[in-house]
Design a protein around this nucleic acid. Structure first.
Lengths: 221, 221
DNA sequence: TTTCCCCTTACGGTTTTCCGTAAGGGGTTT
DNA sequence: AAACCCCTTACGGAAAACCGTAAGGGGAAA
């Protein structure tokens, strides 16, 4: 089993629950932090002292308070850590159950497990820890469909950018101008119209407003 | 102090943390449920047996699972309970920190306290319980601005309905037809345009898409 | 009662979105 | 090379959204 584990989670009670769980699993060195920045520092320090953490269990959302943070969320923390310390195992433990954010965590940041906080959250977390220790990834039932082929909509970064700019109030013509300026192709108004039409069909949206509302609910933007 | 308290919260660890807190405060009869429907039944039963619960501490979001629920969220549970048992005190304990949902809980459903789950959540919950026991309401710092006059935008139910229908993909003309059919005034296309224009100005939105994106982020719809 | 104000509605013109068609270009297949 | 496919772009018309102006009506104030 893991020997040295770090927990990053801003709520005390959950933090305590995970701590108890780890102790029961036989983890001897357990550190807890309530801020992402502290998590980064602790991981970094561990590596420098040649006593690296083997596993990070982290939440996604950390409530902002008076302390200004360099890493405001679990996602940016994970992104930074996985690029700097690729051997560090990471389990994300969060209430987030929208598929797209989970997909991103695996595909873009290479996390090792995702566990949904729920009634059986701690039970799943136990499974995740043992699985990750033996080198396999884990995904909670609640979001297991994140990698079903049926849900694999062909939505790329360009589509996301388009939807994001729309949601920020840019007209299609303004987006076109922006893309021309930034040398993003396709940039023509016609192509943007076409792409949005494709997205409307994919998401069964009646119009652009509906489309943006849908993808916001899905967590794509 | 309260003698008989019910906790409704689907996550075990938090449930346990609140339980501990109540015990320390001297509450003798503490019941816990992980489903809203169970909460309703327990409250109802208490009243029928002439041993009513004095206080309910409830979460807002309950993860859906195999059990189908009549009351899917803390909000509908509170709405039902407060209308049926007005004397029951209710404290909502949730991560939700958007102002509008909190406003609705106080204004529409008459809850007695709202505590944000956060780093100092349990501490605030303690304060809330003692305050509510002495008959005054309580509001966490994180959402205290919910009732600042500066945030009191004059957004009424009609506006919300308008935005909600927009986000569902209805065109302004379709909304007009719908309102005429349901005898909601104003129903004319012109009035709907005017109202949306007012909302765009209020929220600094560039167009309808932007407007819907903004109010979705604010939790108004 | 008359005046005034606010809300609803109507209308016309401009802009933006929506939708189909088609031309041009680059790459691959035959 | 010719045929083909796919993507980008252009264009034009219809629909919807956007915006200003103005008329009608009901209630409050003078």
């Amino acid at each position: 089993m893991f020997k040295k584990v770090l927990i990053a989670e801003d709520m005390e009670d959950i933090n305590k629950g995970v701590h108890t769980l780890l102790t029961e699993l036989g983890v001897t060195q357990i550190k807890q932090v309530q801020y992402c920045d502290d998590a980064y520092l602790k991981i970094k320090k561990g590596v420098l002292n040649n006593e690296p953490f083997q596993l990070l269990i982290t939440d996604l959302s950390f409530k902002a308070d008076h302390r200004s943070q360099k890493y405001p969320s679990g996602e940016v923390l994970v992104e930074k850590l996985k690029s700097e310390f690729p051997t560090l195992k990471v389990i994300v433990y969060s209430v987030e159950d929208r598929l797209q954010p989970v997909r991103n965590l695996f595909n873009k940041h290479g996390i090792d497990a995702y566990v949904c906080k729920s009634r059986s959250g701690l039970k799943n977390l136990t499974i995740a820890i043992t699985k990750v220790f033996s080198g396999v990834t884990f995904l909670s039932n609640e979001v297991s469909s994140a990698f079903n082929s049926i849900n694999e909509l062909e939505i790329d970064d360009y589509d996301i950018s388009l939807l994001d700019n729309l949601s920020k109030g840019l007209s299609q013509e303004e987006i076109s101008a922006l893309y021309i300026e930034n040398h993003i192709v396709p940039a023509s108004l016609s192509s943007i119209e076409k792409r949005l039409n494709k997205l409307r069909i994919q998401f069964n949206a009646h119009n652009a407003i509906h489309l943006v509302a849908i993808v916001k609910d899905l967590g794509l933007i």
